[in-house]
Amino acid sequence: MLSATSKNIVRATLPAVGAAVTDITSLFYRRMFAAHPELERDLFNRGNQKKGEQQKALAGAIAAFARLQLEADQARTDLILSRIANKHASLGIEPEQYGIVHTHLFEAIAEVLGDAATAEVVAAWNEVYWLMAETLIAMEAGLYASAGVAAGDVWRDVRVRERRHESADTVSFVFTSVDNDPLPGFSPGQYVSVAVRLPDGARQIRQYSLSSAPSHDDWRITVKSVSGGEVSNFLHRNIFEEDALTVSLPFGDLVLPDDDSPLLLASAGIGCTPMIGMLSHLAATEDRRQISVIHADRSPSDHAHRAELTELVERLPSAVMHRWYEDLGARRPSGGLRLGRADLDDLAVVPESHAYLCGPLPFMLGIRAALLEKDVPAENIHYEVFGPDSWTAAV
């Protein structure tokens, strides 16, 4: 909890810092990468840095955390920090790296704010930073302990047992152990990080949802090839059966509740992958709860795991599927097959449902708004974002 003095200063300076926070984070990354080029080369997503997405996500997280120190909302604070902590754990972040961030972030704050960055202002925001950092360090320590590893020791080699096209631009890879030891377990909806060494020598890391039911025998991820995607295109062009890959242990907080509450699983595009993992688990355990499955895509041919999704829903006695495609080709809308963009206007949604969303941010925000209108509590709406998390600043 912030001290009373710091809280008053943060409240007074939040508008000015909030207006400058994007400039601050942009300068921060430039300074940090100049001093530690290995971080840009081997840890951070270079593509997101070039597009400015990581800077925006960091700015949103800092501003949101600061606001929550003024108007306490522990549940929202825990949600924001849980997502960051899981992402950090999947990257193998260690406590000492927070000191590096602090040095360059506060140099950027001083330069951008100029004379407004008085000793008192810097001290108050320093308190905000370390409150956030120390909370994250503790959460990450808990994640490492639960995984049975030392801080940062999350990486292991796996072997590609199978490679299969799921649509024209998506490929699934099934991983198995290289030493015949069981793979660590995971919860449906979690992800792993995949680290590859690119031709220019950079080690780039991306997260991919586990698109299969929990198993100690094998893991499966599904990778969509995207324009300019360094890692996705490398995997598509270079990784085949019997190849080895370096991956992290599973992390992520988009996991099913341990109860029998109704579920709504909404995805768009490659956002179907955590939902396929959840549905595989639900089908394997013969779950009988009410489940609504919503998916939106460009066309049936673009829909990765299209046939598998249908088969999984058919195995669940109380599941109903609704699909929207922007282009149906020669097909006509019928039953749960619709033309256009997904909406919930004519769908019955049980207010007690737990909703899980994954896909482009505009899609998820639209579904969230529709769910709130149907009296689903905000705390029952869960989401996964591929790449920098801009959700925090958007809701």
Rank of each mutant, 00 (worst) to 15 (best):
M1Y: 04
A4D: 13
T5S: 11
S6W: 07
T13I: 00
T13S: 12
P15V: 09
V17Q: 12
A19H: 01
T22R: 08
T25Y: 13
T25H: 02
T25C: 07
Y29E: 08
Y29F: 11
R46S: 06
G47Q: 11
G47D: 14
N48S: 10
G52R: 09
A64E: 11
A64R: 11
L68W: 09
L68I: 06
A72S: 14
R76F: 14
R83D: 00
N86W: 00
L91P: 01
G92K: 00
E94Y: 00
P95F: 01
E96H: 10
Y98I: 02
I100W: 02
V101D: 07
H102P: 10
T103A: 13
L105F: 06
L105K: 05
L113P: 12
G114Y: 10
T118P: 15
T118H: 14
A123F: 04
A124Y: 06
W125E: 08
W125V: 09
M132E: 07
T135W: 00
I137T: 07
A138I: 01
Y144P: 02
A147Y: 12
A147W: 08
G148Q: 10
V149P: 02
V149M: 04
V149C: 03
G152P: 06
V154S: 00
V158D: 01
V158L: 04
R159C: 09
R159N: 05
R159W: 03
R161K: 15
D169V: 14
F175G: 11
F175T: 10
D179P: 04
N180A: 15
P182A: 14
P182I: 13
P184V: 14
P184G: 11
S187N: 09
P188L: 09
Q190K: 11
Q190D: 13
Y191Q: 02
R203W: 06
Q204G: 13
L210S: 08
S212P: 00
A213S: 13
D218R: 11
K224A: 13
G229K: 08
S232T: 15
N238L: 02
A244N: 10
L245M: 14
V247K: 07
S248A: 08
P250Y: 08
F251N: 02
F251D: 02
L256V: 07
D259E: 06
D259M: 11
P262C: 03
L264F: 12
L265R: 03
A266D: 06
I270L: 10
G277R: 02
T285Y: 05
D287S: 13
R289S: 05
Q290D: 06
I291F: 05
S292I: 11
S292R: 04
I294Q: 08
H295R: 02
A296T: 01
S299H: 00
S299A: 14
S301G: 04
R306E: 13
A307V: 01
L309I: 07
L312S: 07
A319Q: 05
H322Q: 15
R323A: 11
Y325A: 03
G329H: 03
P333L: 03
G336T: 12
G336H: 04
D343M: 10
A348W: 15
A348M: 14
P360Q: 08
P362I: 12
P362C: 10
F363R: 08
I367M: 15
R368F: 04
R368S: 10
L371Y: 11
L372I: 15
K374S: 13
E379P: 05
Y383F: 15
Y383T: 08
V385R: 10
F386I: 12
F386G: 07
F386Y: 08
A394F: 07
